[in-house]
């Protein structure tokens, strides 16, 4: 995956042989959710994780943000092993932004306060500086008029754009997007994907789980197809989505691209 031309460029994120299991609640033994998953993300990469629900996409993203402990394997971020129990997860998360499928905005805070909470409390920005930064980003993404509203007053697309801005306000080195358009009406999907497209064009490093195949083909530098907790096939989007080698990938694409 790493190009032989850039051997000195260290990857931003390196995932090696990660395994994740959950206890079964009605029978003994553990359910394997991620099995021997390896992945390399270099600065500027846009990695799209595709696969049916339950294939492990969301779990992988949650593991990358240390929201879930892994059962084996190694995750390295910015050249440091972050899966080490001695690493403080909060230090890692300062440099990683995450956006969830259900927006997860704080309903008791205004849009502006949602966006300035972490910059002020975690990154030590002055209230004025945090406000300026949030205003600038909210304005850039067409949310200037909603700054003082509460999230529940906004449409789903607007809420998800706010969630993206909230993640961007802390200037993360890596952005994790977990099916951020899955809960949106079809006509609202575009306004959210436009932002992600802009971010990709600006060189933001992203790992995203998505069901939008055409979008994945357009913005991804690398596509991984997950099935049953394993990366079954990966490569450039034209190859994985255009000429898949694995039968399971072909079967999946037949189901999601009904043409």
């Amino acid at each position: 995956m790493t190009s032989p031309l850039t051997p000195l460029l260290t990857p931003l994120l390196e995932v090696r042989n990660v395994r994740k299991t959950y206890p079964r609640h009605d029978e003994p033994g553990r359910r394997v959710v991620l099995d021997d998953v390896s992945l390399t993300v270099s600065p500027g990469d846009v990695v799209c994780l595709i696969g049916s629900s339950g294939s492990g996409k969301s779990t992988l993203l949650r593991c990358l943000d240390l929201l879930e402990p892994i059962d084996d394997g190694v995750i390295e971020f910015q050249g440091r092993e972050i899966s080490d129990p001695l690493v403080d997860p909060r230090v890692v998360r300062r440099d990683i932004g995450m956006v969830f499928q259900a927006y997860n905005l704080f309903p008791h805070l205004s849009v502006l306060d949602n966006c300035t909470l972490a910059p002020r409390k975690v990154h030590g920005l002055s209230p004025a500086a945090a406000r300026d930064r949030a205003h600038e980003l909210l304005g850039r993404f067409g949310l200037a008029e909603h700054v003082h509203k509460h999230p529940d007053r906004l449409s789903g697309g607007q809420q998800q754009r706010v969630a993206l801005v909230r993640a961007l306000c802390t200037d993360p080195a890596l952005l994790l997007l977990d099916e951020i358009t899955a809960a949106l009406d079809p006509e609202l999907v575009g306004e959210v994907l436009d932002i992600v497209r802009d971010l990709a064009a600006a060189g933001t490093t992203m790992v995203l789980a998505t069901h939008e195949m055409s979008f994945a083909r357009e913005v991804a530098t690398h596509v991984c197809f997950l099935d049953g907790g394993r990366i079954v096939e990966e490569g450039p989007p034209a190859q994985v989505l255009g000429a898949p080698e694995q039968e399971r990938t072909r079967a999946f694409l037949r189901r999601v691209l009904p043409d």
């Binding site: 021997d36 084996d72 001695l86 049953g228």
Partner: peptide, 25 residues
């Protein structure tokens, strides 16, 4: 998937991590 669940053995790194965790505990 059940197959890989039975033949999986924790790696050296994972064993070291478990030792660290129990030390922290």
């Amino acid at each position: 998937m059940t197959g890989s669940a039975t033949d999986w053995q924790p790696s050296e790194r994972e064993l070291a991590r478990r030792r660290t965790r129990s030390r922290q505990h």
